[in-house]
């Protein structure tokens, strides 16, 4: 279920299959138990054009060890059995989904108990078939809104999205930055005029200061590269506990008991 229990909400992105499927499973549980409201289960892709070096490397490792979209769906089903209330989103480039079959993918995602889907390279103009399949299978389509999107596009993006809208904090690829860009607040403010859905801000959020700053103007923050880098540095055995520590650190003392 996509629901932000505390403020700001926390969306955690993981590249599934990095370092391996079993460890991704443990990391996912650790992230949820440490206070992530929603998990973005990242499907590794050979050509992640929207991603910076950290997620590129993770994708490369996951592709190399053979992680497939069907593995990510199977993991989602297990997570759903283990954590009934968790928000679960499949996060992918379009080609693996297209190759699986759009309708087949949506049916399998619904079956697995997935809440929503975010496709990095799917824009609203191209989304008719995609939205049809999503709706038939009761999945929330989540679209990206960018600082460069004019208001008319933001309106369409807001109208097509369910669950939440993902506002990109800056022009660029995924990855951490020292400072949070001023673009972020503006795009959220513009987007707010078109939707009552929660707005999550992502790209470049890597520490408690950023996290708290996003809470000032948005409903949730997406943490991606910072988590993936933590996993890369921690190694298999320590990755789940490192992720739990990182997420608790973001929340600080503000997180309510769950």
């Amino acid at each position: 279920m996509i629901r932000f229990a505390s403020h700001p909400g926390l969306v955690a992105y993981l590249t599934i299959g990095d370092p391996d499927l079993a460890t991704s499973h443990e990391i996912a549980l650790a992230a949820l138990d440490a206070g992530a409201d929603v998990l973005e289960l990242g499907v590794p892709f050979s050509d992640p054009v929207a991603d910076g070096p950290v997620i590129q490397r993770a994708s490369e490792r996951a592709v190399r060890n053979g992680t497939r979209l069907s593995d990510v769906l199977a993991l989602a089903a297990e997570l759903r059995r283990e954590r009934a209330q968790a928000g679960l989103i499949i996060f992918s480039y379009f080609n693996p989904i297209l190759h699986y079959g759009l309708e087949e993918f949506c049916a399998a995602a619904e079956q697995a108990g997935v809440d929503g889907v975010l496709v990095t390279d799917m824009i609203v103009e191209e989304a008719d078939d995609y939205l049809g399949a999503m709706h038939r299978h009761h999945l929330a389509p989540i679209f990206l809104a960018a600082p460069t999107s004019p208001d008319a596009r933001l309106e369409r993006i807001a109208a097509a999205s369910e669950g939440f809208v993902y506002a990109i904090s800056r022009t660029g690829i995924t990855g951490t930055r020292a400072a949070l860009e001023s673009d972020a607040e503006q795009v959220v403010r513009r987007l707010r005029r078109f939707t009552r859905l929660p707005i999550a801000v992502g790209f470049g959020i890597s520490n408690p200061e950023h996290f708290a700053a996003v809470g000032e103007f948005a409903d949730a923050a997406v943490i991606g590269s910072a988590l993936v880098a933590t996993i890369e540095q921690a190694g298999r055995a320590d990755a789940p506990s490192s992720i739990a520590r990182f997420i608790r650190g973001l929340r600080g003392a503000a997180v309510p008991a769950r």
């Binding site: 054009v49 929207a50 379009f94 990095t120 390279d121 799917m122 824009i123 103009e125 191209e126 008719d128 078939d129 679209f143 990206l144 809104a145 960018a146 600082p147 460069t148 999107s149 004019p150 596009r153 993006i157 990109i168 022009t171 660029g172």
Partner: peptide
């Protein structure tokens, strides 16, 4: 994929890009 927007050649073509690039 159906043919519906500008930039299609039969079913092919289209725009599958990150949102940030659409305005450009």
């Amino acid at each position: 994929i159906a043919n519906r927007v500008a930039g299609r050649f039969g079913p092919y073509g289209g725009r599958y890009v990150p949102e940030t690039l659409v305005a450009a």
